[in-house]
């Protein structure tokens, strides 16, 4: 009785909200720009410059990566710091003085395993997929300037490979078990690498994150090459940070879980 009453109140509230928001959006939607027009305020002034000058400034065909890592590199630095902060917060909330002792050793096949993932076929199939994901992740990182990809996708793919190997209980040695402290240190190293890429031009007489003055190679005329190197260093830093944070949150959440199936 109580459940169906609360369900009815939920449904009534939802319908009222939908009608209210729909009607008001119809009325006030007239000052938003028409979708698909060429001369909206968002499509003028700055994005035209980015589109026309991305290839000659940074030698990267992917305009989104050029905007993210070169023209707006300062914003990406602080987004990476926000990610690192979220990882530290998750570890701080769930850290406990007395460790919950459960079996971290390798499970054997006699281990009351009725769950479907402990069959041989699934294990072998997943074991083939994991190195392919790792290679694809590094490919996406390095080709971030030519086609789709970049630092965020590559870090998430590398962490996805580790996650796949960690969750499947197998009966042989698995990938080396990464603790949450090591993963957090990796994430911090990634953010530090990003900051070092910013500080290096300052030692050479430039501003923070000014890629024209990186001290690499012969800066005789190859300004676009210097920008390309700077973008690659930034992407490596972002990849390390994202991979570390995803593995950290995974380990911290998995430590309190007893997998007995």
């Amino acid at each position: 009785m109580k459940k169906s009453n609360s369900n009815k109140k939920l449904a009534a509230g939802l319908i009222a909200i939908i009608i209210l928001v729909g009607a008001s959006a119809l009325k006030i939607g007239s000052f938003l720009p028409v979708i698909g027009a060429q001369d909206t305020p968002a499509n003028s002034y700055l994005s035209e410059y980015y589109i026309s000058h991305a290839v000659e400034d940074t030698a990267s065909h992917n305009i989104v990566t050029a905007v993210l890592a070169d023209y707006r590199g300062f914003d990406t630095l602080f987004e990476t710091c926000v990610l690192f902060l979220s990882g530290i917060t998750a570890v701080m909330i769930l850290s406990t003085k007395k460790k919950i002792s459960h079996d971290k050793t390798i499970r054997t096949i006699n281990d009351n395993s009725e769950h479907i993932f402990s069959s041989n076929i699934m294990d072998a199939a997943f074991r083939i997929v994991v190195p392919i994901i790792l290679i694809y992740g590094i490919y996406v990182l390095i080709h971030g300037e030519i086609s789709l990809g970049g630092g965020f996708q590559a870090g998430a793919l590398l962490a996805c490979a580790y996650l796949l190997d960690r969750i499947i209980p197998s009966f042989q040695m698995r990938v080396k078990h990464i603790t949450d402290e090591i993963a957090l240190i990796t994430a911090g190293t990634g953010a530090l690498f990003y900051v070092i890429t910013g500080i290096l031009p300052m030692l050479n007489g430039g501003n923070f994150l000014e890629f024209n003055k990186l001290p690499f190679g012969s800066g005789a005329g190859d300004i676009a090459g210097l920008h390309s190197t700077g973008i690659l260093m930034i992407e490596i830093g972002v990849t390390l940070c994202v991979m570390g944070i995803i593995i950290t949150i995974l380990e911290v959440v998995l430590e309190r879980t007893d997998f007995d199936d």
Binding site: N62, V64, T65, L148, G149, G150, F152, Q153, A156, L157, A159, C160, L163, I167, I246, I249, L250, V253, L254, R256, T257, D258, F259, D260
Partner: peptide
């Protein structure tokens, strides 16, 4: 690019939820 990122992050987020549900039931 956004779609590529959303595909990966979506599966990782779902796995987090499933692990959390399992931990709460345990």
């Amino acid at each position: 690019d956004v779609a590529f990122t959303e595909a990966i992050i979506g599966t990782i987020s779902t796995v987090y939820f499933i692990i959390a549900i399992k931990s709460i039931k345990n």
